[in-house]
Design a protein around this nucleic acid. Structure first.
Length: 447
DNA sequence: GTCTACTTAGACCGAGCCCTAGCGGGCTC
């Protein structure tokens, strides 16, 4: 069976792709929505889709009927979906990227493909800037302007990827390399290690007895879209999910120095180099060296590197030249907030509006994380698209929440006549939260 | 496409804005 390599995320992504392709084809909006809904369900599934399939229970997932269950089974067994392959063949390879441009929908995109051969964002931009797009009936200056704005937003968003997504990709690549390449040690470096909210690329550092084979395995991964460059100890590739990954194989004696160097941030490293210079030392990705003798005095571990310039090890999350060097020098580095110190969640939706899970599941998840409280903040009726609660349904939800007493201490923040709190709903004394298990509030979506 | 109420068919989220075309459709949230 193929399913060992299939993640719920992969399957959901394929269904989203099918929804887009069906939309471009002009299929029924309900059919399109069926694929989108199924993708959402799979994304929020608490267990491995393959396990559900193995039990023959795919059709117990809401939104998955006979047809979609068949598609899932086909993919798990073969790694392909015949219908998707056929749909893909109907449009150019990168055509769907056009739909990521805000302001450009499937119909307009298809029209531009047919009339002007617009098959990529670059080509779209060219058609807009040259004015060629204005020759297409139904498109005027204003639309052209909006599309150009959309392209600018698309480019800005594309240049960086959200941390969680980049981390998933990095972990997958690390896991495959550990399984398939002669890797002794492998670490994620760069802004991903610093846990920046968004990252531009993924940096991986490896030690190995056979560097060329690591590189060879890396560039041949199925998830690699394009190899930018590859040598004996270094390679850069474009991943299919739209992010660049750089991999370096380094000497174990310099691993700490390389990890420190490639973790950055740049300004933090500049400060370190200045401190080293004052001690007649030189720091590089290869180690810490005595300026006079050229001997390496540190490099195997990050702790060694920091100690060489008179500092304790500094957590990567703090390495932004934002006062962490001064704090380290005076022994005042802050303790980072760890997951076990998070006491509660102040913004949670349930399936009463657009959440994917029931109130019971939400509570279960909160308890599993050791939370002291959770705020149920479903949409109000002002957000119809999200299935927001009107007065009657809100009363029902309040009743459902109250039924959880006395096991949980509860505070209801919504008014009796659906007099829903404005966004200031979170503005109540934090000490109150400590006494509560569940708070219910319907928060108005800004309109 | 799925789901539901009934076994074959109909419902399925919708308001508001923008743009183009002259009334309706695309798009967003």
């Amino acid at each position: 069976m193929y399913h060992d390599a299939v993640t719920n995320f992969d399957m959901a992504r394929l269904f989203y792709e099918m929804a887009h392709l069906l939309e471009v084809r002009g299929e029924s909006a309900f059919r399109v929505r069926a694929y989108q809904r199924a993708a959402q369900q799979i994304e929020s599934l608490a267990e491995d889709l393959a396990a559900v399939a193995a039990r023959g229970e795919l059709q117990t997932i809401p939104g998955i009927g006979k047809d979609l269950a068949t598609r899932i089974t086909e993919y798990l067994a073969t790694g392909k979906i015949g219908q998707l392959e056929a749909l893909r063949a109907e449009v150019p390879p990168n055509f769907l990227t056009l739909l990521e441009v805000r302001g450009l929908g499937p119909k307009t995109a298809k029209l531009l493909l047919e009339r002007l051969g617009v098959d990529s964002v670059d080509r779209l931009e060219e058609a807009c800037t040259s004015g060629e797009i204005l020759t297409v009936a139904g498109i005027r200056e204003k639309t052209c302007e909006n599309i150009l704005k959309g392209i600018a937003i698309w480019r800005a968003g594309r240049s960086r990827m959200l941390l969680a997504r980049a981390r998933d990709i990095a972990r997958q690549v690390v896991a495959v390399l550990q399984a398939q390449a002669p890797v002794e040690r492998i670490e994620i470096a760069g802004s991903l290690r610093r846990m920046r909210e968004t990252v531009k690329d993924i940096d991986l550092l490896v030690t190995s007895t056979d560097p060329p084979r690591v590189i060879e395995t890396f560039v041949a991964l199925p998830s690699v879209l394009e190899v930018i460059g590859a040598g004996d100890t270094k390679a850069s590739v474009h991943h299919t999910d739209g992010i660049q990954i750089d991999l370096r194989v380094v000497d174990p004696a310099a691993f700490g120095a390389a990890l420190q160097y490639f973790t950055g941030a740049k300004d933090h490293n500049v400060r370190l180099r200045e401190m080293a210079s004052r001690r007649r030392l030189k720091i590089s990705e290869y180690g810490v060296f005595d300026e006079l003798t050229g001997n390496r005095v540190a490099g195997a571990t990050e702790e060694e590197v920091y100690a060489a310039v008179g500092l304790p090890w500094i957590p990567p999350e703090l390495r932004e030249n934002g006062g962490e060097i001064e704090a380290a020098l005076t022994g005042a580095l802050p303790a980072l907030i760890t997951a076990d110190r998070i006491r509660g969640d102040l913004h949670a939706h349930t399936d009463w509006s657009d959440g994917h899970h029931s109130l019971a599941k939400l509570i279960e998840a909160a308890e599993a994380r050791g939370y002291e409280y959770i705020l149920v903040s479903d949409h109000s009726k002002s957000s119809t698209v999200a299935g927001g609660l009107g007065a009657d349904r809100l009363r029902e939800q309040i009743r459902a929440v109250r039924e959880l007493q006395p096991r949980y201490k509860i505070r209801i923040l919504a008014g009796s006549e659906c007099d829903i709190l404005a966004d200031g709903a979170m503005d109540f004394p934090p000490e109150v939260l400590g006494e509560l298990d569940i708070v219910l509030a319907a928060v108005r979506t800004p309109t």
